[in-house]
Amino acid sequence: MKRFYLSLAVFIGLLAICGFALLKIAQTKEEVETMLERITSSVESGDLQSAQRLSDELITYWIPQEHKLIRYIRHGELDTITLSLSRLPSLIRYENLSEFLAEINQVQTVLNHIWDSEIPVLRNIL
């Protein structure tokens, strides 16, 4: 029975790790989405300086989060977000707003895709 209880403990540990990873993704997604919404409304209202400041803040927030998330998520999707975010400062500086908003959209879509593929629902399991 020693092995059984050891396995039970390991399994509970695994459930905890999975739960923690899901929580971390949810927190990051929520935070990034809020920041993206603020950036979009700044751009739409013509306040480009504020949009630039918020983009820099988003990049500063994202980098440490990415380092944590690579432990749980395939790196490819996180790399896509990082690449899109890295383009934002230049795009806003040279006022290429259509590209800027497209990149913001891409980040949002990839984030949603990550969350959708990580939640433990039947659609993802089967």
Partner: peptide, 23 residues
Amino acid sequence: NVPFLGGAIPILTIVCFEVFAST
């Protein structure tokens, strides 16, 4: 590109279930 936990979690899950099944 696959996180280390992406391999470790399935392996440990299989190990646990093998012990549960044999018990």
